[in-house]
Amino acid sequence: MSTSPENVIVTRNLTKTYRDFWGRPKVKALNSLSIDVKRGEVFGLLGPNGSGKTTTLKLLLGLLFPTDGEVSILGRPATDVSKNEKIGYLPEESYLYRFLNAEETLDFYGRLFDMPASVRKERTRELIKMVQLDHAKRRQLKEYSKGMTRRIGLAQALINDPELILLDEPTSGLDPIGSRDMKDLIIGLKERGKTVVMCSHLLADVQDVCDRIAILDGGELKVFGRVQDLLKDQGVTQIKTSKLPPEAMKEVEAVLQKHGSKVMEVDNPTATLEELFIKTVRESAARPGQRYIPPSN
């Protein structure tokens, strides 16, 4: 398989068929997937539940063996253990050891990388700070909330300062602030030159951070390309103005009619729900005590 240095991941005709007990094909989870992921980009795998995105990730990691096709990751086969030296992986749910506390968790995974004690200590401290778990670093993970577990999961994925980070549903289960932080983190990683592959079914997340995406459905690759290119609809122009009086509105319509176009929808522009939520929470933190009072008739 040809791998250029900038291609971190290359798959060719990657196929996975689950079989039943007797070896008869049961489900074709992935069919002939061929994609490349370039160094330094944030790559998104999209698709509804059961579309094959997690299967793809697990094939990349060697947790599953392909029925057909090939995978190369950092220039090595997926089953080669040494590739893991430079990979960080955040599983769908953070499958960590619930009887360990945050520090022990990071220390344990650090040891698996054969890291010297001083480095381990330093990395642990940094990462706990980064994921804002300072206050809970001595508590066992079984006492953690879902968001905290996600964050410690991310921390363990970064323990070895990996080149390639694989994130499975990184924002699932997070509240909007957590989600935002996560996205900021991903962008931060990208800025430091890391390659990130994430899969998600939340389009907004992907839209915010990914450079390129692949949309899978039923194990087939449906769409593949740069996000900006994919989202740009050339047939629609959106005009944003300050508030228009009805007369002016009519005039605008007339002008548009003259050019053979028409108003499809006129509305006040709104932010996404996510943006509104964040704005509200941020404002409430800044000015405690303020409440929303519905207008009286």
């Binding site: 990691l61 060697g62 947790l63 253990v81 040494s82 893991n84 030296e85 990979i87 992986y89 599983p91 749910e93 953070s94 499958y95 960590l96 050891y97 995974y109 698996l112 990388f113 054969d114 363990q156 070895n160």
Partner: peptide, 14 residues
């Protein structure tokens, strides 16, 4: 079963 091994085998552990 709890998949906690996944986070171990995706480290450079033989």
């Amino acid at each position: 079963r709890l998949r906690s091994l996944h986070t171990v085998v995706t480290k450079p552990v033989r």
